[in-house]
């Protein structure tokens, strides 16, 4: 499976993402600059964390109008898996590929530490290797991860099982309903604030994030490879 790691000016988790795919997962990955106008050769799209365009105006607001985003929307509409982590999640929200918006963290601080996540939906293309209710250890690193949406949107998210990850225990950033990650209705676009790409090697504290990437590959093989 071949992944595109989209790189915006100010992305800073692109190398970790590339490492996770290439070295830990053993799949193909390529860096793709934000000016790219074709993603046809890729099977999956990864939007890494960082501070695209210096977080000017709002996190993700400017990146969302990059040339490559037209292609990301096209890939999403074609059913390809699209994963946005941290700033990548913020870009997906700004682009309207996922509902809601991010506010500053409740306590106005940048949080950088491991958190416990609960897997709320283990039947998605991104979580099928986990079990429902699994508690996993994944780091967060953000100043604006305080998820918000209106009541109607929240009801829809709940009714369709679109809330994929929640924070277990303390709510680190004030996020609505402790939401840490959501998926679109079609089930192929996932956004999450925590960084699974930083949790792919037990030597560095946790490898709980690796199963997320394995899930993507497993799901893709089942539908694309004969006799998988």
């Amino acid at each position: 499976m071949k992944f595109a790691v989209i790189v915006f000016p100010g992305s800073n988790c692109d190398v970790d993402m590339y490492h996770a795919i290439k070295d830990e997962l053993g799949e193909e990955a390529e860096y793709v600059w934000h000016t790219a106008d074709n993603l046809d050769q890729f099977d999956g799209i990864l939007l890494p964390g960082g501070f695209s365009y210096g977080d000017y105006l709002r996190s993700g607001a400017i990146a969302r109008f990059s040339t490559v985003m037209t292609e990301v929307v096209k890939a999403a509409n074609a059913g390809k898996p699209v994963l946005g982590i941290c700033n990548g999640f913020q870009i997906l929200l700004e682009a309207g590929l996922l509902p809601g918006a991010m506010r500053r963290n409740r306590d106005l601080k940048f949080i950088c530490r491991p958190v416990q996540l609960q897997v709320e939906n283990a039947e998605t293309a991104f979580t099928n290797s986990y079990s429902q209710g699994d508690v996993i250890n994944i780091p967060v690193a953000h100043g604006e991860g305080n998820y918000y949406c209106d009541e109607v949107t929240l009801e829809t998210l709940k009714a369709n099982n679109q809330i994929v990850f929640t924070y277990k225990g303390d709510n680190p950033n004030g996020s609505l309903e402790k939401i840490a990650g959501i998926i679109n209705q079609q089930g192929n676009v996932l956004g999450m604030m925590p960084h699974p790409e930083r949790a792919v090697d037990s030597l560095l504290g946790s490898n709980d994030g690796l199963m997320l990437f394995q899930s993507i590959v497993k799901n893709w093989r089942e539908s694309h490879v004969v006799n998988a």
Partner: peptide, 8 residues
């Protein structure tokens, strides 16, 4: 389209 995010 850009200057405000009308969700919030």
């Amino acid at each position: 389209r850009l200057l405000a995010n009308t969700v919030i």
